[in-house]
Computed example of a mutant assay.
Amino acid sequence: MFDRLFGRRSGSAEPELPAIRNITIGRTVVLDPLAWRRFGGALLFPFDSDTLQIVAQGVVQLDGGGFIHRFYTDEDVMFQAVTNDRAGQDVTDVTIFAPWESKYPTGRGERPAWRERLTARTFTDEGLPEYSRAWFGDEAERQDPVTFWEDLHDDRDGIVDRRIFQTCMLYARTVEGDGRELLLAIDQETEAGEVSFEIMLGMALELGEFRA
């Protein structure tokens, strides 16, 4: 999904958040539910609605150019668009992810162990099948995960309300009917030092499978 490394955003905030294909805070995204229902019960993707009410927006600037725009609901469903420009006129990739599980480390060794899992060729967890590494291919036994800062906004004034540092890896598995389910495994830490481990399941969308 991402072909470039991520980097921490630098410089001052833009005066206003961009709307990506008319999507921004306060808007409703209407999805084509056949995008995933056509695969029947093959997907574990924990989402079965045709609308998203956007309440927060995240922006990541890629180290080598380009941007990631993320749009969140109250239920932490994440609609994501990768673009070549901040204004979002050139969209290259669209995905939707829903939370599967959140974990909060309580012991000293839990975080190093979790991060080690993000380097592996495959990923699985309780109740999940095996997913293969989608970023960088699965040839190498180990691969460093991707890291980046995400600037999060609760309104459209362009002022960053909070920032989260994320270390993550994308995995995928093939399902019946020529489908592909994505798994995003994340280690995230707020600026206040709060850490959580996140597993999200999702899928890619075509540009004609949503509107706002």
Rank of each mutant, 00 (worst) to 15 (best):
F197R: 04
E206H: 07
V30L: 12
G179Q: 09
Q188V: 01
A42M: 09
I54V: 14
D161A: 14
D138P: 02
K103A: 15
A19F: 13
V160G: 04
M203G: 10
A87K: 02
G158A: 04
S12L: 14
E176W: 07
H69R: 02
R142V: 15
T24Y: 05
A140N: 02
E181G: 00
E110G: 00
A120K: 10
R121E: 12
E209R: 01
L182V: 01
T92P: 01
P129L: 01
G137A: 05
T122E: 15
D3E: 15
V29R: 01
S132M: 12
D48C: 08
L182W: 07
T106I: 14
A192Y: 10
T147N: 12
K103M: 15
V77F: 03
R9P: 02
G26I: 02
Y104V: 02
I96H: 08
T124N: 11
A81V: 06
G64P: 12
A19C: 12
R38Y: 04
V94Y: 05
T122D: 14
F165T: 13
A172F: 00
E150Y: 05
T51G: 04
W114N: 06
G64F: 15
S12H: 11
F123N: 01
W100D: 03
L183Y: 03
N84H: 14
E139M: 14
S49G: 13
V29G: 06
P99T: 03
T83C: 09
V195E: 03
H153S: 06
T28N: 11
I23D: 09
D161C: 08
G202Q: 00
D154C: 09
S49E: 15
V91Q: 01
T147W: 07
R38K: 10
R38Q: 12
D157E: 13
G11S: 00
D76I: 10
W149V: 15
A140Y: 01
A42H: 11
R108I: 13
V60E: 03
E16S: 09
F97N: 00
L170C: 05
V175T: 00
Q188Y: 03
E191W: 11
A98F: 06
G7Q: 00
V160L: 05
G193T: 08
G127V: 06
R86I: 11
D178N: 15
A87P: 03
Y171C: 06
